[in-house]
């Protein structure tokens, strides 16, 4: 029982961190109707941005996280303006495919640029707080706990922002119907830019929070990106609440999968397969995810 609880709690914590990563992806999807295949590299850039801010500018770790988010917000805005922008005109015929290809191109570009610029050796910023919380059989390191709490705070702030501020409501309006939003005087194009910037910033936040838990390397985003895809499908693309549920579900399923897979020798090698299997079954049963609104093609 202790063992089960231990795995479940560990899965819950890691799942919350994944959820933060997925929230940015889902925000971009709900407003732009674009799956950002470059999300993993934005997460990587966030991790490095915070690392350099902490080690070279000497700011305290929490400020490093904030700076990384600001930097990636700016990056997201520029990328959206330069590359995604033509999608909303008639120049682009097949928008789903266009988006998949350009964001995938961004991944190839940034991953390799990362190796050139950041170098091949692992880096790690200092921990937020060293040590671990030990309560009976439960052991959670403070870094994980802090990251999970920060994820809850950021996700709550995001929900609040979307529900309570005028900019957030404008984003939500565009995500539901860009035509109606345009009618009531919201410029959808501005909202696309804002949403992509915010989504990038959330990815950066996740990268910066995870940096002290797992070390930094240019290809650190590959695996979490796949996890985030799984989460947004589980949670239904475009739902922030859904991505929280999806994140926790994924974390717990993977943890328990490894813990209880009959053959211990292969359990670890199959970790990612548990999540991928979850995605496959979810899509077979519900082609638009667990809590998804029907997917409208971007026209």
């Amino acid at each position: 029982m202790d063992y089960f609880a231990l795995l479940a709690i560990n899965g819950l914590v890691i799942g919350l961190i994944y959820a933060l990563m997925a929230a940015g992806l889902t925000l971009i999807f709900s407003v732009l109707k674009v799956v950002n295949f470059g999300h993993g590299t934005l997460y990587m850039l966030g991790g490095y941005a915070s690392y350099y801010a902490i080690t070279y500018l000497g700011v305290p770790p929490p400020a490093g996280v904030v700076l990384a988010m600001v930097a990636l917000f700016a990056f997201g805005v520029v990328f959206e303006r330069l590359v995604l922008h033509p999608m909303y005109t008639n120049k682009v015929e097949r928008k789903d495919e266009y988006a998949i290809i350009v964001t995938f191109g961004l991944t190839v570009l940034l991953l390799n640029l990362g190796i050139v610029v950041f170098g091949p050796f692992s880096k790690s910023p200092p921990p937020f707080l060293a040590g671990a919380l030990i309560a009976g059989p439960l052991i959670i390191t403070y870094d994980r706990l802090i990251a999970a709490i920060a994820a809850i705070v950021l996700l709550s702030a995001l929900s609040w922002f979307l529900a309570r501020t005028s900019l957030g409501q404008a984003l939500d309006a565009v995500s539901q119907s860009r035509e109606s939003a345009a009618v009531i005087g919201i410029n959808p194009r501005r909202m696309y830019t804002v949403a992509f910037g915010l989504g990038s910033a959330l990815a950066a936040g996740a990268g910066a929070l995870i940096a002290p838990i797992f070390a930094l390397s240019p290809n650190m985003g590959e695996l979490p990106a796949v996890q985030a895809f799984i989460i947004i499908v589980l949670g239904g693309m475009g739902s922030v609440g859904g991505s929280i549920v999806g994140g926790i579900l994924l974390g717990v399923v993977e943890g328990l999968g490894v813990g209880f897979f009959p053959d211990p020798n292969r359990a670890l090698a199959y970790t990612e397969a548990f999540g991928a299997l979850l995605l496959v079954f979810t899509l077979l049963v519900r082609p638009t995810g667990l809590f998804g609104r029907p997917h409208a093609r971007l026209e």
């Binding site: 799956v35 998949i100 995605l279 997917h295 093609r297």
Partner: peptide
Amino acid sequence: LTGPYLALFTLA
């Protein structure tokens, strides 16, 4: 499945 869902399903 369509669009991104198809892409993600086949990726998985």
